[in-house]
Measured scan of single mutants.
Amino acid sequence: LTVEVTLDGRRIELHGLSEEAHEILRHALERNADDKEIKKILEELRK
């Protein structure tokens, strides 16, 4: 799955996400998580 997010003013596409990762990010974006929170989530998903 692919998600497009804006971090530090740049639009980035995240490819190859699992369903779980996609859901976690989608929920964070829906509640307008800040860049710091999104980065933390991405860091966790990379593990």
Results as ranks from 00 to 15, higher is better:
Arg46Val: 14
Leu29Ala: 04
Arg31Pro: 01
Glu23Ala: 13
Ile12Phe: 11
Asp35Ala: 07
Asp8Ala: 05
Leu1Asp: 05
Asp34Leu: 08
Asp35Tyr: 07
Thr6Val: 14
Leu1Ala: 08
Glu19Arg: 08
Asp35Ser: 14
Ile41Lys: 01
Arg11Pro: 09
Ile38Asp: 00
Arg26Trp: 07
Arg26Gln: 11
Asp35Gln: 12
Thr2Glu: 04
Lys36Trp: 11
Leu45Gly: 02
His22Trp: 15
Gly9Val: 02
Ala28Ser: 03
Ile12Asp: 03
Ala21Asn: 06
His27Val: 12
Glu19Asp: 10
Glu44Lys: 11
Gly16Trp: 09
Gly9Gln: 02
Asn32Glu: 09
Lys39Trp: 12
Lys40Ala: 13
Glu37Gly: 02
Arg10Ser: 13
His27Gly: 13
His22Lys: 13
Val3Ile: 15
Arg31Thr: 07
Leu7Ile: 13
Gly9Thr: 02
Leu7His: 03
Glu13Thr: 15
Asn32His: 11
Arg46Ile: 15
Gly16Ser: 06
Leu1Cys: 01
His22Gln: 11
Asp35Arg: 04
Ser18Asp: 08
Val5Gly: 02
Arg46Trp: 15
Leu25His: 00
Asp34Met: 06
Arg46Met: 15
Lys47Gln: 13
Asp34Arg: 04
Val5Glu: 02
Ala33Phe: 07
Glu23Leu: 11
Gly16Lys: 03
Leu14Lys: 01
Val3His: 05
Leu42Phe: 04
Ile38Cys: 05
Leu29Ser: 03
Glu43Ile: 09
Glu20Cys: 08
Ile12Tyr: 14
Ile24Cys: 12
Ile38Met: 10
Asp34Thr: 13
Lys47His: 15
Glu30Tyr: 06
Lys36Gly: 13
Arg10Phe: 15
Ala21Asp: 10
Lys40Trp: 12
Glu37Leu: 06
Ser18Leu: 03
Lys39Asn: 08
Lys47Pro: 11
Lys39Gly: 08
Glu13Lys: 13
His27Cys: 10
Asp8Cys: 14
Val5Cys: 07
His15Leu: 07
Lys36Cys: 06
Arg46His: 13
Leu29Phe: 07
Glu43Met: 10
Asp34Ser: 10
Thr6Gly: 02
Ile12Ala: 02
Leu45Asp: 01
Arg11Trp: 10
His27Leu: 14
Leu29Tyr: 04
Arg11Gly: 06
Lys47Tyr: 15
Ser18Ala: 04
Arg26Asn: 08
Val5Tyr: 04
Thr6Gln: 08
Leu1Thr: 07
Arg10Thr: 13
Leu42Gln: 00
Thr6Glu: 12
Lys36Arg: 12
Glu43Ser: 10
Glu4Pro: 03
Asp35Thr: 10
Glu4Lys: 06
Ile38Pro: 00
Leu42Thr: 01
Gly9Ala: 02
Leu45Val: 06
Gly16Met: 06
Leu25Gly: 00
Ala33Cys: 09
Ile38Asn: 00
Leu25Asn: 00
Leu45Gln: 02
Ile12His: 04
Leu7Pro: 02
Lys47Arg: 10
Glu20Val: 10
Glu23Val: 08
Asn32Ile: 05
Asn32Pro: 04
Arg11Glu: 09
Arg31Leu: 09
Arg26Ala: 07
Glu23Phe: 10
His15Tyr: 11
Leu25Asp: 00
Ile38His: 00
Leu7Gln: 04
Glu30Ala: 11
Leu14Thr: 03
Leu25Tyr: 02
Asn32Val: 05
Ser18His: 03
Ile41Asp: 00
Arg26Cys: 03
Glu43Asp: 12
Arg31Lys: 09
Gly16Leu: 06
Lys40Phe: 11
Glu23Asp: 07
Arg11Tyr: 11
Glu43Cys: 08
Ala28Tyr: 05
Ile24Val: 08
His15Thr: 14
Val5Lys: 02
Thr6Pro: 02
Ser18Gln: 03
Arg46Ala: 14
Leu42Lys: 00
Lys40Gly: 11
Leu1Lys: 10
Glu44Tyr: 12
Glu30Ser: 10
Glu13Phe: 14
Ala21Arg: 02
Ala28Gln: 01
Ile38Leu: 12
Arg31Cys: 11
Asp34Ala: 09
Arg26Lys: 12
Glu43Thr: 07
Glu20Asp: 09
Leu25Lys: 00
Glu44Ala: 11
Leu14Arg: 01
Asp35His: 08
Lys40Val: 11
Lys36Glu: 14
Glu44Gln: 11
Glu4Arg: 05
Ile41Gln: 01
Glu44Ser: 09
Glu4Trp: 14
His27Phe: 10
Leu7Cys: 11
Ser18Ile: 02
Leu45Glu: 01
Lys36Tyr: 12
Ser18Cys: 01
Lys36Val: 14
Asp8Met: 02
Thr2Ala: 07
Glu30Gln: 10
Lys40Leu: 13
Glu30Cys: 12
Leu29Trp: 06
Leu1Ile: 13
Glu23Arg: 15
Val5Met: 06
Ile12Pro: 03
Ala21Cys: 06
Ala21Val: 06
His22Phe: 15
Arg11His: 12
Gly16Glu: 05
Ile24Asn: 05
His27Asn: 12
Lys47Asp: 13
Ile24Gln: 09
Val3Ala: 06
Leu14Ala: 03
Arg46Phe: 15
Lys36Ala: 14
Lys39Phe: 12
Gly16His: 08
Glu23Cys: 05
Leu42Tyr: 04
Thr2Trp: 11
Leu45His: 04
Asp35Gly: 09
Asp8Ile: 01
Asn32Phe: 10
Val5Thr: 03
Arg46Asn: 14
Ile38Arg: 01
Glu20Tyr: 13
Val3Gly: 04
Ala28Lys: 01
Ala21Ile: 06
His27Thr: 13
Leu17Gln: 01
Ala21Met: 11
His27Met: 13
Thr2Asn: 07
Arg31Phe: 06
Val5Arg: 01
His27Trp: 09
Leu17Glu: 01
Val3Ser: 05
Leu14Cys: 08
Ile41Arg: 00
Leu1Phe: 15
Ile38Phe: 05
Ile24Pro: 01
Leu45Ser: 02
Glu23Met: 13
Glu30His: 06
Glu30Phe: 07
Glu13Leu: 14
Lys40His: 12
Ile24Ala: 07
Arg26Gly: 03
Glu43Arg: 12
Arg11Cys: 12
Lys47Leu: 15
Ile38Ser: 00
Glu19Ile: 14
His22Gly: 09
Ala33Gly: 04
Lys47Ile: 15
Leu1Glu: 06
Arg26Pro: 00
Arg11Asp: 08
Arg46Lys: 13
Glu30Val: 06
Gly9Tyr: 02
His22Ala: 15
Ala33Arg: 04
Ala28Trp: 06
Arg46Cys: 11
Leu7Met: 09
His27Asp: 14
Leu42Val: 08
Leu29Pro: 00
His22Asn: 08
Arg46Gly: 15
Val5Trp: 02
Glu30Met: 09
Gly9Pro: 01
Glu20Gln: 12
His27Pro: 01
Ala33Ser: 04
Glu37Asp: 06
Lys47Ala: 14
Glu20Lys: 12
Ile12Glu: 06
Asp8Thr: 02
Thr6Ser: 06
Lys39Ile: 12
Asn32Trp: 08
Leu42Pro: 00
